[in-house]
Design a protein around this nucleic acid. Structure first.
Length: 278
DNA sequence: AATGCTAGCAACCGCCATGCA
DNA sequence: ATGCATGGCGGTTGCTAGCAT
């Protein structure tokens, strides 16, 4: 197919729209509808290509567009929708009335991506995170950590119920460490507690945590929790639904026999929940 | 005050899907 | 079935304002 000449070669204008051009476009569409975009600029008396007119209208001049900063709720929705839909900006925009795909895309690239990347566990949690640099992990063929509401379940998930497990109070921190260097931390609330805001919940993950081995052996369905740390993982792991009221963690990784992988669980109070070797 | 840097955003580009003749 | 026109989408670019030095 022969590509139509670009606007410039046709002697058409490019670049920012002037208020006068906006006015002409709005007036024309209000009076006649947009119909055929390609024919529109000529009919309206604009020295623009149809594509440029369509973009200007859909992204800026449409009367139903909501201008102004995104609210926190909108940003949260974008994050969640992006986890569900990936970079399908138009699909995300369809779920956010008054917002355009272009706008959402811009917000994602300029604010939200950065925000996710920079999230850290709350200070009171981080205080109790440790790197167990000197420990040496036992080799194992599989580790599966499961928790529902309560980190004591993590221990139970591996070793069965432990009557000596401390009762967890308001929130806990888990640390998963690979290769003795990288660390992932996460804050959780007890079951049923609503998050104040999800800054308190986004895991902090060192980039080095995501070793190639770990990534290549992680079972997608078992890694719901591990997701939001690295933007490079977007789409590869589902984003944890941090807004759901009932916090249910599902953290796990299937590991090769020769992988060196170990973990500890720390409780907010500072007590170390010792996990026996396995 | 001048310069450089950066973030934010509007607009463009190129590709793809769809509908129609 | 094919070719073409058009619309739509996502990635990218480049301008501008604001801030730092």
């Amino acid at each position: 197919m022969v590509r139509a000449p670009c606007c410039e070669k046709m002697g058409l204008k490019k670049g920012p729209w002037t208020p006068e051009e906006d006015q002409i476009l709005v007036s024309y569409i209000q009076a006649n509808g947009h119909g055929n975009w390609r024919a529109l600029p000529k009919l309206a008396g604009l020295l623009r290509c149809g594509k440029s007119c369509r973009l200007r209208w859909t992204n800026y001049l449409r009367p139903d567009i909501k201008r102004g900063n995104f609210t926190r709720e909108e940003e949260d929705s974008i994050i969640q929708l992006h986890e569900m839909l990936g970079n399908r900006w138009s699909a995300i925009a369809a779920r956010l009335p008054g917002r355009t795909d272009n706008e959402i895309k811009n917000v994602w690239h300029t604010h939200l991506k950065k925000r996710l990347k920079n999230y850290q566990a709350p200070e009171n949690s981080k205080r109790h995170c440790k790197k167990n640099i000197d420990s040496k992990a036992p080799s194992t063929s599989q580790i599966t950590l499961k928790s529902s509401h309560n980190f004591s379940n993590i221990k139970e998930g591996i070793n069965g119920p432990d009557p000596n497990s401390p009762q967890l109070s308001s929130s806990e921190v888990s640390t998963v460490t690979a290769d003795s260097e990288s660390v992932m931390t996460m804050g959780v609330t007890n079951g049923g507690d609503q998050m104040d805001s999800y800054e308190n919940f986004i895991p902090e993950i060192d980039e080095s945590f995501w070793t190639d081995d770990l990534l290549s052996t992680a079972d997608n369905s078992n890694f719901d929790m591990a997701i939001s740390g690295g933007e490079e993982l977007q789409g590869q792991f589902p984003f944890y639904d941090m807004k759901q009221e009932s916090v249910e963690l599902d953290v796990g990784a299937k590991l090769e026999d020769d992988m060196d992988f170990w973990y500890n669980v720390f409780i907010k109070s500072g007590d170390l929940l010792e996990l026996p070797e396995f």
